[in-house]
């Protein structure tokens, strides 16, 4: 059909766009309503689930980590919202399932981790193993009447708490040295050589320049430079009472 020129074409085009926009509007409206209905359906399912299993989620570490793992896989961050944020103010529905306790559990755990890292900073330079944090928290728990059989704080809980600190630009980072998870509470990253030296220390318990040269094939000055840097950051302590000077790491004590 030859394109009609002139006024007829003009209003034809207007008409087309008109229909298209109304069509688009209806599509959007149906889509929107479907989304909201689905949300409310999901919310109902959630509340039934929470009445049944909420206690599990709150105090069983295995369940908690399984729930958190699934959330991350489908892109949900239940810890994003404060536990007391009312729904109409952008609170998340997960608080119903988790209840303020679980959010508070992770946040309170994170508060305690921040405090432990800060207290031990001068001792270990700001690098501490997750297991040591766990044992310190349990010891503290006992001393504050926690009865020692504390809500089992698993390493996974600790790692997740530290992860949720990320938005605070805190420089709190979970890094892996060798096989153990460590928490670094100082902004400065470890370069490859430094991490390697700490790894060796984890295996042997200490390190000397000779050991580094033999095992890693580094030339002595390079090894010395790396060790001096680690000393400057207070990650290593020096021991000069037995033959060759040896370097130990309080964080892998």
């Amino acid at each position: 059909m030859r394109r009609r020129v002139g006024l007829a074409a003009l209003d034809r085009r207007a008409q087309d766009s008109q229909t298209r926009s109304t069509h688009g509007a209806t599509l959007r409206r149906t889509h929107q309503s479907e989304l909201t209905t689905q949300l409310s359906v999901f919310q109902a399912a959630l509340s039934t689930f929470s009445t049944q299993y909420s206690s599990e989620i709150r105090q069983n570490p295995k369940f908690r980590s399984e729930f958190a793992r699934m959330c991350t896989t489908i892109g949900i961050d239940p810890l994003a919202a404060s536990s007391n944020r009312p729904k109409e103010k952008g609170g998340s529905i997960w608080s119903e399932l988790l209840g303020t306790q679980v959010n508070d559990f992770y946040f309170e755990l994170a508060v305690k981790i921040v405090e432990v890292c800060r207290d031990t900073r001068s001792k270990n330079g700001g690098l501490i193993s997750v297991s040591e944090v766990q044992s310190t928290l349990l010891k503290k728990d006992q001393s504050t009447g926690g009865g020692g059989t504390g809500l089992q704080i698993s390493e996974d809980d600790i790692i997740r708490s530290v992860e949720c600190l990320k938005p605070l630009g805190s420089g709190f980072e979970v890094i892996k040295i060798g096989k153990t998870n460590m928490i670094r509470s100082v902004p400065k990253e470890l370069n490859r050589d430094q991490a390697k030296v700490l790894e060796v220390i984890q295996v042997l318990g200490f390190v000397t320049i000779g050991v580094l040269v033999d095992n890693l094939g580094w030339i002595a000055p390079r090894a010395q430079a790396v060790v001096d840097d680690l000393m400057a950051e207070a990650y290593l302590w020096v021991d000069e009472q037995e033959g060759e000077t040896s370097y130990w790491a309080p964080c892998s004590l």
Binding site: F206, W237, Q241, W248
Partner: peptide, 8 residues
Amino acid sequence: FPPFYTRQ
């Protein structure tokens, strides 16, 4: 901890 006996 051996280094405890060396003045850091």
